[in-house]
Simulated assay, not measured.
Amino acid sequence: MSQYYAPEGGLPPQTQLMTGRAVFTEAYCVIPKGCFSDIVTSALPGWKNTRLWLIARPMSGFAETFSQYVMEVGPGGGSDLPEPDPVAQGVIFVTNGEVRLSLDGTWHDLGPGGYAYIPPGCDWKLHNGTDHPARFHWVRKLYEYAPGIAAPKAFVTSDKDVKPVAMPDTGGRWATTRFADPDDIAHDMHVNIVTFQPGGVIPFEETHVMEHGLYVLEGKAVYRLNRDWVEVEAGDFMWLRAYCPQACYAAGPGPFRYLLYKDVNRHAKLRGPGAFGR
């Protein structure tokens, strides 16, 4: 049994109350796990026996740097041409089932906790050769090339193979599993796992330029988002624009863990999309 929450779809009964925890504000969005129903799935060109929940996409005036999909690939499904944009980079994180991933001709088997960074221009394929569905997150971002810096290389690792790094003076109650070297400036995005032990907190309201996607893999917490306190649990997704104040208390009996996207290591754009210059 996977420790990571993964949606399975379906529909709620007609007797269920329609009022839930979903909210979209000027600074953040919360998509609770109950919103991951069959009627909001989509399909992608070039993908066989696959459906997805598209939970984040660039939106003018909100978060503009990334998209995030929760993918479900059925038996025999997958794609030989998964990424249509040659400048897009991606991260795959498997939550349920197993997939075979080819990166520039080298095949890798990924199970729950499996992680892959896919650089722009990489020739990659993904297939499910098992008799049960595979579910994973796919985070996409246009790579921002910088003078004199080559794009990162592809790599494959897993949650169990990367030791979490505790935040200073927290007694290990707040730690981050960093899959890419945070000192490697070639990376312009990080997709990490943040873990809070019961009682762990972010003890101040983080307010910063990085946009976030936070998918709760395990546990529950109370999150401060802009002016509100919001309860979240495994299967919920939080989507934060730049400078949205944020903090949290880990409120459950077990660890609270989420998959975190953030954009890093590049100049602020002064021209073009997301900027005011011409």
Rank of each mutant, 00 (worst) to 15 (best):
W174M: 10
A221Y: 09
S102C: 13
R227T: 15
L11D: 10
V91R: 03
N128V: 07
Y243T: 14
G105N: 06
T106Y: 00
G219V: 10
W53I: 06
A180S: 15
A6C: 09
V94W: 02
E72M: 06
Q197Y: 09
V165Y: 07
D131H: 06
K160D: 01
A250F: 00
G172W: 02
G272D: 13
G199M: 14
I118M: 08
V94L: 11
G61C: 13
Q246F: 14
R271N: 14
G20Y: 06
N192F: 05
G113H: 00
F93E: 02
G74V: 03
V191N: 08
T41D: 04
T19D: 11
M1Y: 07
I149Q: 09
G129V: 08
P13C: 05
P75Y: 01
L103I: 09
G121T: 12
A27V: 08
F93P: 01
P133C: 13
A275T: 05
A43P: 05
V232Y: 00
A43T: 15
Y28V: 12
R57C: 12
T95P: 03
P273I: 04
T176A: 11
Y243M: 15
E233W: 03
G113C: 10
D181F: 01
E206N: 10
F276K: 14
P198A: 07
A150V: 05
S79H: 02
H108D: 11
F196W: 02
A242Y: 01
T19C: 05
A6G: 12
G20I: 02
P86F: 11
G171C: 09
Y243N: 15
T176M: 03
Y223G: 05
I39A: 12
K125D: 04
A43S: 14
P58H: 09
G219Y: 05
G114F: 02
V139W: 04
M238A: 12
P253W: 00
Y249K: 14
H132R: 15
K48V: 09
E211W: 02
A154K: 11
P32L: 09
G200Q: 05
P147M: 09
T95A: 07
W124F: 07
Y115R: 00
G76A: 05
L110E: 08
S60L: 09
D263P: 06
G219N: 07
L103C: 02
G74A: 02
A88Y: 07
V73K: 00
Y115G: 03
K220S: 10
V94M: 06
G200R: 02
P147F: 03
Y115F: 07
V230Q: 10
N265P: 08
F136Y: 11
A63C: 04
G74S: 06
G199P: 13
V91I: 12
F155S: 06
E8R: 11
S79A: 14
A166Y: 00
V30T: 00
N96K: 13
K33F: 04
T25P: 01
G97S: 06
V194D: 14
L270V: 15
C244F: 07
N192Q: 14
M59L: 15
F204I: 09
D104H: 06
T130C: 11
I39E: 07
P32C: 14
R178V: 01
L214S: 08
F155T: 10
D38Q: 04
T50N: 10
E218I: 00
F155L: 15
G61N: 13
S158K: 00
K163V: 09
M1K: 13
G121I: 13
F179C: 04
A175Y: 02
G78H: 05
A151K: 15
Q246G: 11
F93H: 06
M1C: 11
A56K: 13
M167L: 12
